[in-house]
């Protein structure tokens, strides 16, 4: 294999006049396929140490917080906790808001791949008739979570306000948020397989 590569390179060196890049005509260009792909490993963290909007108060009791403080520990917890990212969406004019709240944690994965793949066989006989290119996301075998969390709720305002404080102190007693549920994830989730994506009419 190596000797063949060297042979090809030396042939190129020996004949520089023929090695110049040439414009491809349309027919040649249309017969070419993209090749190769991307292999991704990474770790990213969201609001691991809290965000910019609120600082962590000393206690978990909302009536003791100042205007710039908020804790996202569950009700009744003894210690306060940093808050994660908040996304609020309103799906109705003059309505309330869906809230994805306290999204934070560290997520790491190794071996997320992205490439194109031609499928023209396999898949219980479907592949031959399909015969086209797909975009293939190869899932990493393992995704690690550390202190991952999020909460799903509904609220009457997009931005969070402290209902235990008076308006004069930077709160809003009429603010209402109901968390439907929240979740915490720690540890490793195994995800294997590929997601094949292709255009569809």
């Amino acid at each position: 294999m190596i000797s063949k590569v060297w042979l090809a390179i030396s042939a190129l060196l020996a004949m520089p006049a023929f090695a110049e890049m040439q414009a491809l005509d349309d027919d040649t260009l249309s017969s070419m396929n993209g090749q190769g792909g991307v292999y991704l490993s990474g770790e990213f963290s969201i609001n691991k140490d809290g965000g910019v909007l609120w600082s962590k108060p000393a206690s978990n009791n909302p009536s003791t917080w100042t205007a710039g403080q908020r804790s996202c520990a569950t009700a009744g917890a003894s210690t306060a906790e940093n808050c994660g990212m908040r996304v609020a969406i309103r799906s109705e004019a003059d309505g309330g808001w869906y809230v994805l709240d306290n999204l934070k944690g560290v997520f790491s994965f190794e071996g997320l791949t992205l490439r194109t793949r031609t499928i023209n066989s396999g898949f219980n006989g479907d592949g031959a008739a399909f015969n086209q290119d797909v975009l293939e996301f190869g899932l990493p075998n393992e995704v690690k979570f550390k202190d991952g969390s999020f909460a799903f709720g509904v609220a009457n305002q997009g931005g969070w306000q402290n209902k235990s404080l008076s308006v004069a102190n930077g709160g809003n007693p009429s603010y209402q948020q109901t968390n439907i549920f929240s979740a915490k994830i720690d540890g490793t989730i195994r995800m294997q397989g590929n997601v094949l994506i292709f255009p569809q009419n």
Binding site: A75, G153, I180, G187, M191, Q200
Partner: peptide, 24 residues
């Protein structure tokens, strides 16, 4: 139009993770 997708040789196993649901 849009896109179609197929989950090829997929498997999911969360037995190695601690997942807790709160706010109930």
């Amino acid at each position: 139009a849009g896109f179609g997708f197929v989950l090829d040789s997929i498997m999911l196993d969360a037995s190695g993770a601690n997942i807790t649901i709160n706010d109930i």
